[in-house]
Amino acid sequence: MWKSMFYKEWIKVRLASILSLAVGTVAILGIYLNVRHTFIITNAHEFWDGIINQRHIYFKLFKYIPLGIGILIGLSQFLPEVKDKRIKLTLHLPLNEEKAGLKMVAFGLTCLLTLYSILSALLILPGRYYFPYEVVALSANTIIPWFSAGLAAYFITGLITIEPLWKYKVFYTLLGFAFINLFYQSDLAGAYQYAWLPFLGIISLVSISILFSIYRFRKGEM
């Protein structure tokens, strides 16, 4: 059953996943082409100065990409379920409704984490070629809230999409917006190094929100 469930989820998200990977990779390629270009036309040490002393984040272009990916994966997974109330089909499958919902989220999360792992490795590791490890380490620290925002956005997209009533969809969107905003409070590289763990804690609070949405649907909120 896991296999069948994942098969359906994969059919839904594969296009979005490939697209996300493509967009992320192109952005990373652009970032490093720009670094290379700057190293060639100006001086390497000036670029370093920009990063180390003037707090320039050379991969700022990537800032909202994980967020976009989180929303995209969420929409591609949950919109087809609510279109024509297809979620009825999913809930009618011969397995516990809660398990069915959690399996969907588990798949989406796996998919998202895989994408994030690949992209963060592609984004951070080539930096070692151009910069000392301190820069690479703090850069890795800098992207954590961006990816966390994507993760939060994925769960909240699920909550908003499956919620049957428009009124609550609007409320949850506002709350989600406020939540996501918290991940972009500081532009300083490494500013979140003491905060990302509690933020992951809040994200885990919304991670099983699908159970609440499914419950509302099953009880006839339409």
Partner: peptide, 8 residues
Amino acid sequence: TPSYHLFP
């Protein structure tokens, strides 16, 4: 403040 611990 977050720092790279590198300096010119």
